[in-house]
């Protein structure tokens, strides 16, 4: 598993609070058994309605890797299809005022860091990306700063989650499976496990 210490590239600003996962990937695109192909469908309805004016359609943001959003991004449905669609479009990290909790957790499990920044800093970064879309920016998880032009702004991420990215342990699956003996011991001390109410009984 790979360490994630910094992400450099071009940024894409997407303004608006409470952008929910139904908007990120409308439910009709969830009729699939793989995540392949979701990148093309990201924000499908919002993009159709804005007729080329959506940031994800604008030529200056094609190839961007850092998405800059506002408050409560990714609220609503737990569908991992939402961050998968964003990642398959090309995004490697998100900077925002705040994120919905399940969305944030899904991103961690995919190795896509979501950091928060003060609203004023997010808005400053969004304005900067609107004016200078081609200039690269950099998110540094070690320094907890985002750099744009000659500017820097502090970003935030809990210590535990940050360490998972820095150490390359964001994919917890292997660690969880490795503790299988302790898992069995925990199960055995839970009274309900032996009550015989489980599905197979």
């Amino acid at each position: 598993m790979s360490q994630v210490k910094s992400i450099a590239g071009r940024g894409i600003p997407l303004t608006g609070n409470d952008i929910d996962t139904d908007r990120i990937i409308p439910a009709r695109f969830l009729r699939c058994v793989t995540f392949d192909g979701l990148g093309a469908q990201v924000f499908a309805d919002d993009r159709a309605q804005t007729q080329g004016q959506h940031a994800f359609d604008q030529p200056q943001y094609q190839g961007a890797t850092l998405l800059v959003v506002n408050r409560n991004f990714g609220c609503g449905s737990s569908r991992e299809h939402a961050p998968q669609a964003i990642a398959k479009w090309g995004i490697k990290a998100l900077i925002g005022e705040s994120f919905a909790e399940i969305f944030f957790g899904n991103c961690v499990a995919m190795g896509v860091p979501c950091v928060t920044a003060a609203p004023a800093d997010v808005q400053r970064l969004q304005s900067w990306l609107t004016e200078l879309p081609q200039d690269p920016i950099k998110l540094d998880l070690e320094a907890l700063e985002v750099y744009f032009g000659h500017n820097a702004a502090p970003v935030f991420m809990s210590e535990g989650v940050r360490n998972m990215f820095l150490n390359g342990t964001w994919d917890a699956c292997g660690q969880l499976v490795a503790q299988i003996e302790q898992v069995r011991q925990t199960a055995n001390r839970l009274p309900y496990v032996s009550w015989g109410q489980s599905a197979s009984m």
Binding site: V161, N163, A172, Q175, Q182
Partner: peptide, 10 residues
């Protein structure tokens, strides 16, 4: 179950 190296709970 335990505490993971990240500090998260299993």
């Amino acid at each position: 179950v335990g505490t993971l190296p990240s500090g998260q709970t299993q």
